[in-house]
Each structure stands twice: as C-alpha cells, then as structure tokens.
Design a protein around this nucleic acid. Structure first.
Lengths: 295, 295
DNA sequence: TCAAAAGCGTGCCTTTTTCGCACATATCAT
DNA sequence: ATGATATGTGCGAAAAAGGCACGCTTTTGA
C-alpha cells in the first residue's frame, strides 16, 4: 500500500494558513516567520499542481479547491493532535495490586521503578497475599496470580509461564551439574512437594529419598534458605532471574518443566479507571519484555 | 488554538513502522534506510516520553500505548492521503457553457487558457447566446448571464458586477475628459438606449441630443465600432478591461454606475458531473481574482 | 557446527530542507 | 502622506534528515 503523501510540514503550514485565512496568522501559531508559511504553501501548490489560495488586495483567501482540501485536512490534524495529547497528561489515581509474595518481591518490585518514573502521580498500593482469593475481599483492583492450569475462562492475560529449574547458591552448586549430584543435595520444595519427584523423573533418576513432607515450607522461606546456601530449589526462572543475574543464585541444570503460569486478574469494573488501565498496560508491556534501554 | 503536534515526519515513520511491525518494512515503503526509521521512532518516543515499540528477539512489536497511538494515526493519514489523491487525477468529461457573446469574448475566453492548462482532458464546449433563455434549450450545462436585478432566488453566484464607464479608442478620447466633451462625441449604446441619459444625469449634464433609438445595435457591433474609433461606448469595465490593458481602449471618465451583474446559472442536475463542478469552481475562483503569478 | 541472512541500534559525515532576515511591493487606515 | 498590515523573494545560516558502515543478536540453512 504505497501511500505518497505530500510533504507533511507543508500540509501543516497550509492547514494553519487556511484556518487563519492568513499566512501571518499561521506563522504566529506555528512559531515561524511568515516567509516559511509562504514558501510551504507555494511549494504545496506546485507539488499538487493546483492553486490553494488566491490573492486578495490585502492578504489571501482559499480557493474552492483549497477550501475543500482544508476541510479534509483539519479533522485529520485534529485527531492526530488529540491522540498525541494523551502523552502530555500526567495520569493520577490509585491502583491496588495484589501479588503473590515471592512474585512480588522478585519479579514485580524490581520492575516498579519504571512504573514510578513513568507515572509519578499514580499511587500504587501493593499487597502480598498468596491465596488465590477473590479480589474484592482484599480490596484490590488487580492481582498477579499463579494458575496451574491456566485461568480457565477468566479474562486474565498471561504474564509469565517460564519453566521451573533447579537453582542454588554458588557455594552449593555450579552451572550444569549432573542430575544425580543435584538430587543428592538438600532439596528445597517450593509450594508443592512432588516437584522434585517430577524433575527426577524427567532427568531419568530415581525419585529423591526422604519424606516429601519434611521440607515443605512457605515459598519465601524456601527461597531465603536457598539464597543462604542451604539447598537446591526448584523454582520458576523468572523469579530466580534477578538473583541469578547478580550471581547470588546459579541455575545448575537445563532440565526443567512448566508447572503453570502467572496471570493478571482484574476485579469487576475497575477497567473504567484510567490508573488501573495504565497499570494493566504497563505490566503487560513489561511481561512481554520491553526494550531494555531506558531514557 | 495552539496545537503542538509532534514532528510529522516522525509520525509518518512511526505509523508505517507500526503497520509493518517492522522498521525495515517501513523503510522500504517510505524509500529510506532502516536507520532513518529507527531514529524517527526513537526521537518520537523521547519526545512523547513513552515507549511505542518493544524489542523482540528479532524485530520489534508495538507496545500497548504504541498500538493505541497507531490506531488513531492511521485513519488520519489515510484521510490525508485520500484528500491529496484528488489532485493526482486528471479529470475528464465535457462541459457545455453558454455565455453572452461579448462577455465570452472579452472576459471568458482570455481566461480559458488557464482552464485548458489545468484540465487538459476536459472538453469545453463554448456557446454564445445573448438571450436569457432556458439552459435546456441550448443543451448547456452552465450559462454566464447578465441580470439587471440579480438572479432573484436562483442559485446563481455572482461573477462580476463592475460598473459601466465610458470607453473609447485613444484616437477619440484621452483619460479623464470632462463629461460635456464626452457627451459631444458620437455615443454608442450598449444594450439599452437610456444608459447615456442616466450617465449624463450622474455627470450633471443635459441629456444627450439625438434620437436615442438611432444608435441601438447589437453589443458586439457597438464594441467593434468603439474599437474602430467611431465613438464612445458605455460598457462594463470588466469587459473593456482586456482592450484597456492593451491600450486599444481608454476609460475617459471615472463617472460610472452599476446596471446589473453577471452570474453563473446552472442547469438542473448537472452538478453531479465532476467536469461541470470543476468548471464551476474554476470560474468562481477566476471571478474572485486568482493570484496572477502562474506556474 | 558454522556461515549467512535478517533486523535493529549508532557514530560519523553529507546532503537536503527549512528558516530567518532583510528588503520589496501593495494596500489600508488615519 | 505616513505608518501599519500583509505577502513575495534572494541569500546565507542552521537544522533536520539521510546514508553508510559497522556492531550486535537471532534465526535459518547447509
């Protein structure tokens, strides 16, 4: 669809001149000299091969063709201006977001600096609750939740579905250890006791010894334990990412599996509030992986 | 209404990039290098303070904000392109125009060169009839007619209402002669016998001698007679204009009066034909006095 | 496994566009 | 008549845009 538009700056000059029925007026509006407008209009007329203005004894007036052209251009520029104004506004309001504690700490909070910078006037209220509870009870607008089998019908877009991998502190493991060796270390369980059993199966090893229930603990504690160098943790790689990047954790195997995914759940009706919409858009962009370069 | 638009060329670059979901694609469409697109988009993002694209492993994709912006921009550019395409077309068709003989010769025909140049593919059929006759009878689409008292309710826009002045050949008169002296010359009558009587009254002189009916003749003949240096003619200055400019006639007094006006009359339904519309627009622009400079 | 291709970002330099200024011209108001 | 308004234009300066070459990453294909 090759669309050869006339020079856009000349169009803008003509549009302003047409509205003002005056080159000087347009020049003032656009903050340039009248000669710039004169040249632009003349150039546009040459380019289009049509006369857009006629000379009055003093000043100029649109020709019929010019008037028709203007009538098409003005609304277009209006729409462009309107759409551009959105970026000038500093949105305000409140958003209450409820996230699972570990996901909040390791995924959301590291990214929030960008949100605060982008929307300094939006008050973000962050809550951490691990239960898959209904949003209204916690008075949250949005929730970041883990689903084992997808959000099942709800309108809850995907945030992350990175697989689980074994991570541990560098004092405990090195990159790409053999599965048998990993399974011989203290195994920390995140959220579900049988994740290590499944992983051992994938790795072609015997299931880990020891009573599975021994090590069940809250996810945050398991994570801290791993950081402290007291065992190996099977955990979503997007959560371990921040500590892996800083060298505090090491992914010691490329064997992993997907156990579920994080989704964004919205409370009823909150999308009418612009602050909520903006947070939603922002977090979806984040989850899709925005350009790393920051202004 | 100060309307600060973002750089329009950057907008165009972004719009193309958004449609293609690709900088390279946009570059090809716009006939520039991909780096130009990249810079434009980056500059626009800086200017708006918002991220419009995100990086994909290979290529780019719109952010939520970028997608919304694109959805507003694309239709606007489409409309602009559509409105601009009008000028690319070479209109064709036929227009049949009926004009009073003298007005056709002295006003219309000298201007027609511009029409032929502008619309070389429109066939213009020119007729000359002096009667105020109905258009259908002459099979004309448009007529240029003289009205003594305005077109009275018809939709017949004004073409010219210049006043009558006395004109004669330079061998007969000089510029600004006293009315008495003018009235002593052979008085040629255009169209109405009592025009000289009225003019004499305005000049504060006695009405001209001689039987008024003696000199009534068709307007074209009276005009030719004046050109040949055989008398003074009271005639609309827009008709005498072309011969006055070339020095073949001289306006010998500034005393004049308005006797009526020329209007453009349209036949029923012909405005549906673009060639007729274009001629109408063209002649209205001409009558309003287009810029003299010609391309 | 290695090489080539597809895509985008960026520094550096050239080209093109745009602009402002000053002056000229014409008209209008006082 | 004179100053203010309004546009057209030549000329030199400034800015924007663009191209090229190169670097980086991912994908594809042999």
């Amino acid at each position: 669809m090759p669309r050869a538009l006339p020079p856009l700056n000349a169009l803008r000059a003509f549009e302003a001149a047409g509205r003002h029925q005056s080159f000087s007026g347009a020049a003032e509006e656009l903050g340039v000299s009248h000669s710039a407008i004169s040249r632009h209009v003349r150039g546009l007329e040459d380019r289009l091969g049509a006369q857009l203005f006629r000379d009055l004894p003093r000043g100029v007036a649109l020709t019929q063709a010019g008037a028709r052209y203007l009538a098409a251009l003005s609304p277009s520029f209006d729409r462009i201006a309107e759409a551009s104004e959105v970026f000038d506004q500093r949105p305000t309001g409140q958003v209450t977001v409820d996230a699972e504690p570990l996901f909040a700490m390791k995924w959301l909070i590291p990214r929030l600096g960008d949100f605060y910078r982008r929307y300094p006037d939006i008050e973000l209220r962050l809550q951490a609750n691990s239960a898959i509870a209904d949003l209204g009870r916690y008075e949250a607008d949005l929730a970041l939740r883990f689903f084992h089998a997808g959000p099942e019908g709800q309108d809850a877009p995907l945030l992350s579905n990175a697989p689980l991998y074994p991570f541990a502190a560098p004092s405990v493991v090195s990159r790409l250890m053999p599965p048998e060796k990993i399974l011989s270390l203290p195994l920390l369980r995140d959220r579900h006791a049988d994740t290590w059993r499944k992983w051992a199966g994938l790795a072609g090893c015997a299931p880990p010894a020891g009573a599975p229930s021994d090590w069940r603990m809250r996810a945050r504690l398991a994570y801290e334990t791993a950081l402290a160098g007291h065992g190996v943790l099977l955990i979503s790689s997007e959560i371990a990412e921040v500590d892996a990047a800083s060298g505090r954790l090491i992914q010691c195997s490329d064997i992993g599996f997907r156990m579920g995914s994080y989704h964004l759940v919205s409370a009823e009706g909150v999308m009418r509030r612009s602050a909520v919409r903006l947070f939603r858009e922002w977090i979806l962009d984040q989850s899709a992986g925005l350009r790393s370069v920051n202004r």
